[in-house]
Amino acid sequence: MRINYLFLLVTGIAIAPVHAESSWQEYSYPDSGVAFQLPVAPKVSNDKLILQSGISVPTTVYSARQDNVAYSVIVANFAGTSVEPRAVINETEKTISATGTVAFSVDARVDGEIGRQLSINAADGSRAKVAIFFTGDRLYELIGRTLPPDAAAGSGETIRFQESLRFISQSGAELRKGRPGVRGGPPGNAGPRRR
């Protein structure tokens, strides 16, 4: 698989870091079937992903950066192809694992979908938390990377990013029960509650 992780790294570093007080909110992209939370609004770009088999598919990349943490979500659209989802997940895991030492890797579940979650210590001193899922003809790869020299700082933010992933329908509706992404508590108390 060829995916331009160098592009992602450069993009993550090039995006001016924002030092404003944390203000996480959910960003929903029904066209991509995904929603996730970030402390700053992501920039959207397009790229492509090429599998070892030669299959090439378009990707949409959502990137953001705050302080020393670079966030990205890659959505690869496999519609019209006949790939085996688990094989694509495995190839994606193998590719990104080659960028460093895998500290931890495990099967994981989001909204009933099974995928992989990894933690990688890269050779450049950065640390990445990665989530890989395949659902609805799309591959989803979340990467939260803390940058050197102090890659431990901000590492808690990358798990927050990873755990915020959820899958939504084309209409933006939830694919599970509940009211994810809504700030506040019971109906009528939907305002921000940051303390």
Binding site: S22, W24, D107, A108, S119, K129, R183, R194
Partner: peptide, 22 residues
């Protein structure tokens, strides 16, 4: 899966922020 639920640890510190969100 990313949490080690077989272990518990304690932290002493000061609250920076509480973000109540789904």
């Amino acid at each position: 899966a990313m949490f080690d639920r077989s272990r518990s640890e304690t932290l002493n510190g000061k609250v920076k922020e509480l973000d109540i969100i789904n």
